[in-house]
Design a binder for these strands. Structure first.
Lengths: 233, 233
DNA sequence: CTGCATCCGCCTCGATACTG
DNA sequence: CAGTATCGAGGCGGATGCAG
């Protein structure tokens, strides 16, 4: 008899936690926020998660209508899991939790897992629409093998996968450095000086990019101009 | 050796879940969102939570700076737990999760716990600032022994504890009915007809109240007028 | 009586092995 | 590749004890 453990409270929060409150569940949702993912992809990105647990969680989420199975290309083989519209509604909440948790990321320990594609969600979580500049432009990020960019257009900023067309700024770094900067444990300046971050493009664009991400540049930002290729990652 | 279980991921979401992702933790936070609470108060509102668990969770949250101890009146005795500013930042996330979870509240089962003060948070979660009317007024709610109101002023709606001064509408009901209405499992009209909800005040105010809460009235709402005291709870 | 700490049975979790 | 089966370890839930 498999009697699932619930809070048994007649309340929206308790009901929500009965669905996505168990261990690993929201991290599985995070993986699906980047688009459909295969069983083995999820497993590879979540070290420590047992295969039985993932199977059970996915089955449960499908049952509750948060996740559904899709076949990515053609018919038959190549199944993948994706968020339903209900699951997609978790996006602002997961991003908000991620932003809140930035406060608690500590020193990088050797046993910690880091994935470059998390940087995409980190950027999406950090975007502050109230600090968007009136300049329409793109800022491209190359975090290890992942490429994505911020597109500013008409006073709105959005995170987009893939390369930008003609980015006003390109940032190259590794996943660990990226998270450390996002958590405020490292300024872009220090990261550049220590060779972990390389910036190309207009200095003003860099400042505007940091601004929309709520980052301290770590530099006075008085002089405009071109950033010389000081550091290569 | 108590080696706390963590996700060991260098990521904001994983760090957040390492702090508030364990069982019961967010429900404890919910209790503190209503104001400082005593150890025994929390325990009484969370049936099934073991005493050791609550002590451990609180100690951990204090350690991480999410919760702190305060003495409510005078010095010495009568300690209570309250959210720190960091913990307070969880409010929109917890409310968002509560709103998301409304989708999943099912039929009320006899073993389910319901607390009238949860209604206050439910209202706060349901408020839709984009649907605030231009009429400055208050809507009072009496859910079992709990009294609170929505104050609309200058295009902003907020949930406030306590009675309103001269409410444009007063709703009396019990906690279970309140949650059922909030979850869309019951319309205010049906609740009234079955005697579980009593409304007093201007009919137009009732409609505006339902509107700002994103509720279907369940009535055509064409004729304005006074609601007769049809049902008493 | 409140605010915990200790103990114990059980269930979930995490790792490995195995199968279609 | 996508799971299922199994099993040891540990977190959880309930009862009880105890100090202020």
């Amino acid at each position: 008899m498999s009697t699932r453990r619930t809070y048994q409270q007649y309340c929206g929060l308790a009901s929500a936690l009965d669905v996505v409150g168990e261990r690993w569940t929201l991290l599985i949702v995070r993986e699906l926020l980047m688009g459909p993912a295969r069983y083995s992809d999820i497993l590879a990105n979540l070290p420590g998660l047992g295969t039985n647990l993932l199977a059970e969680r996915l089955k449960f989420l499908v049952e509750r209508g948060v996740v559904h199975q899709v076949d990515v290309r053609g018919t038959g083989a190549q199944l993948a899991y994706a968020l339903t519209p209900v699951g997609e509604q978790l996006r602002p909440l997961v991003l908000g939790l991620a932003r809140w948790g930035m406060e608690f990321v500590g020193d990088l320990r050797p046993e910690d897992t880091v994935r470059p594609h998390w940087g995409f969600l980190a950027v999406e979580a950090m975007l502050d629409q109230s600090k968007v500049s009136d300049v329409d432009e793109c800022y491209e990020f190359r975090v290890d093998d992942q490429v994505f960019h911020i597109a500013v257009s008409g006073g709105r900023a959005s995170a987009v996968k893939g390369a930008a067309e003609s980015p006003a700024m390109v940032a190259r770094t590794d996943a660990a450095t990226f998270v450390q900067i996002g958590a405020g444990r490292l300024t872009p300046l220090i990261a550049m000086v220590t060779g972990r971050l390389a910036l190309e493009g207009d200095m003003d664009a860099v400042v505007r990019c940091c601004d929309v991400l709520g980052l301290e540049t770590g530099m006075p930002a008085r002089h405009a101009g071109q950033v010389p290729p000081v550091a290569a990652v």
